[in-house]
């Protein structure tokens, strides 16, 4: 159990997917202008990652790994060259299905969250997390914890950023630096702050 907490905290803080892995930057910069948007997108990312990472783990384990098709009488088949395309498709399909389901059953939730789901399909933090899960050879439970933690880390980052940008509203930033430029500089400072976590041993 302690191992799982260790994995969770180190993924959220020490190896934050955004600050040390540079993944999911585009939507991080584009959608952190308003707090409500950031919260909605953050929640959606946590949800999608928690579901897709273990799902992709299952796909890899029972379909794509070399020897995974032994149950179908094909022990020699190695479909691992399909990993990328299967991961991408499962993420895209899942986000579309979730969107359709919540639109049907909870229009209120769809109002707040729905618009972000298509955006997530092309968020590299999602695919990146699945790929890293695959490369690091996690077990199923580890994969689930890693997915949830990675999403939480990303969500935390975008909410923090939205809060800082709100304050920034009142500062006098030079014209060409407004928007993207100053956001990147702030992200750099935040990344430095997060580096302080790397001294923690878990």
């Amino acid at each position: 159990m302690a191992d799982y907490w260790g994995l969770f905290f180190s993924t959220v803080f020490v190896n934050n997917i955004l600050f040390s892995g540079f993944l999911g930057m585009c939507s991080f910069l584009a959608c952190s202008r308003r707090m409500s948007t950031a919260l909605g997108l953050g929640a959606a990312v946590v949800f999608v990652l928690t579901v897709t990472v273990p799902l992709n783990w299952l796909l890899k384990e029972f379909l794509l790994r070399k020897g995974a098709l032994a149950w179908a009488g094909l022990p020699e088949t190695d479909l691992s060259f399909l990993v990328l395309i299967v991961f991408v498709s499962s993420i895209a399909a899942l986000t579309q299905i979730v969107e359709i389901v919540i639109e049907r059953y909870s229009p209120a939730l769809h109002e707040s969250l729905g618009v972000f789901l298509p955006l997530i399909a092309v968020n590299c933090a999602i695919l990146g997390t699945s790929l890293f899960m695959d490369q690091r050879g996690y077990t199923f439970v580890q994969a689930a914890v890693y997915g949830a933690a990675s999403g939480t880390g990303w969500g935390l980052a975008i909410v923090l950023m939205a809060a800082i940008r709100k304050k920034l509203w009142y500062s006098d930033v030079p014209g060409p630096l407004k928007g993207l430029g100053i956001s990147l500089l702030i992200t750099g400072l935040m990344a430095m702050a997060f580096m302080a976590f790397s001294g923690i041993r878990l």
Binding site: F19, S20, F22, P174, P176, L177, L180, G181, I182, S183, L184, L185, T187, G188, L189, A191, M192, M195
Partner: peptide, 17 residues
Amino acid sequence: LAPGAFFLLGLVVWLQR
């Protein structure tokens, strides 16, 4: 390290804009 990359890109954006 990561922060260096963020700062530089920020500066490049500033310059280009």
